[in-house]
Structure formats: structure tokens, C-alpha cells
């Protein structure tokens, strides 16, 4: 069936089966492979994107459900060569090891600061409940988010 929605600011339309997951549409049809599939059971958070500005797990949403909405993926954050401040903070604080969870972590972290501009360390850790880092590199992920929050 026909769908049209905006991805990273670009209006696009396509033809998808209703059973196509948003994450598969992003990766396979649009080539936006920055959004990862980790567990595929809505636990790990590697697939987090923003839907109308709110973080959601794109492995647990049908592409057709995004009809008329705005999707933002990790590819939509940087302004040309200038990284988004959250991306810059992750680079600065070494908030990634293997990098697999990083896109989801960053999309989730940006949503946190939208809701709570100055979170405590506990609030950051609580918020990251739905994002798993298989390298267990949480310490610097939390630090990266704190650094970004302080610079805002």
C-alpha cells in the first residue's frame, strides 16, 4: 500500500506491504542503515528513531503507521559536516566502543534532553532503560549525555 511521510526533512512516498517494519523500510528501501537492528524484539534500542519528535523503537512500528508523520534517524542529525551537539559529545567523551548501539543511544538521549534539559545521573541511567550496550560502555555514554546537557 502507498505511504508518504517525511524522513529527515525530505518528503517521500513509497509502496510497502503493511507488514513491513519501519526499520526495514528505512534500511532496505531508503538505504538509511544507520538505524540498527539488534534484538528485533523491542528490548535493545539499537533501532530507536524519532517519530514526530519522540523516540520510538522502529522494529516495533509498521512503516504504514508513520503515514503523514515526521521520521528522524541518526542520518538526519548532523548539519552538513557539523555534528549534532549530542554526536559531538559522544565523540568527545568516547561514548562508544563498537558503535552498534550508538545511533539508538544518541536518538534516545536527544529525546531525554527534550523532556529534561538538566537530568541527574540517575535520571539519565533510568532513561536509558531501553537501550542496551553490548560492550557495557555505559559509563562514558552517561558522561557524553551529561557533557551535552551542560553545554546547552
Amino acid at each position: 500500500m502507498k505511504v508518504s511521510f517525511s524522513v529527515n526533512g525530505a518528503e517521500l512516498s513509497g509502496d510497502v506491504e503493511p507488514r513491513t517494519l519501519l526499520v526495514d523500510f528505512l534500511r532496505n528501501d531508503l538505504g538509511l542503515t544507520g538505524t540498527h537492528v539488534g534484538c528485533d524484539t523491542s528490548q535493545c534500542g539499537a533501532c530507536v528513531v524519532h517519530l514526530d519528535g519522540r523516540s520510538i523503537k522502529s522494529c516495533t512500528l509498521l512503516a504504514v503507521q508513520a503515514e503523514g508523520m515526521q521520521v528522524t534517524t541518526i542520518e538526519g542529525l548532523a548539519d552538513g559536516d557539523a555534528l549534532h551537539p549530542m554526536q559531538a559529545a559522544f565523540r568527545e567523551e568516547h561514548g562508544l566502543q563498537c558503535g552498534f548501539c550508538t545511533p539508538g543511544m544518541i536518538m534516545s538521549a536527544i529525546d531525554l534532553l527534550q523532556n529534561n534539559a538538566a537530568p541527574t545521573e540517575k535520571e539519565i541511567r533510568d532513561w536509558l532503560e531501553g537501550n542496551l550496550c553490548r560492550c557495557t560502555g555505559y559509563q562514558n555514554i552517561v558522561k557524553s549525555i551529561q557533557t551535552n546537557a551542560k553545554s546547552q
Binding site: S42, G45, V48, L51, R54, S55, I56, K57, T60, L61, S108, D111, L112, W127, E129, G130, N131
Partner: peptide, 9 residues
């Protein structure tokens, strides 16, 4: 309930 992304949907 769940995690922030579950709570958002």
C-alpha cells in the same frame, strides 16, 4: 511501565 520508547507508544 517498560522503557521510554515503550511509554511513547
Amino acid at each position: 511501565i517498560g522503557d521510554p520508547q515503550v511509554r511513547n507508544r
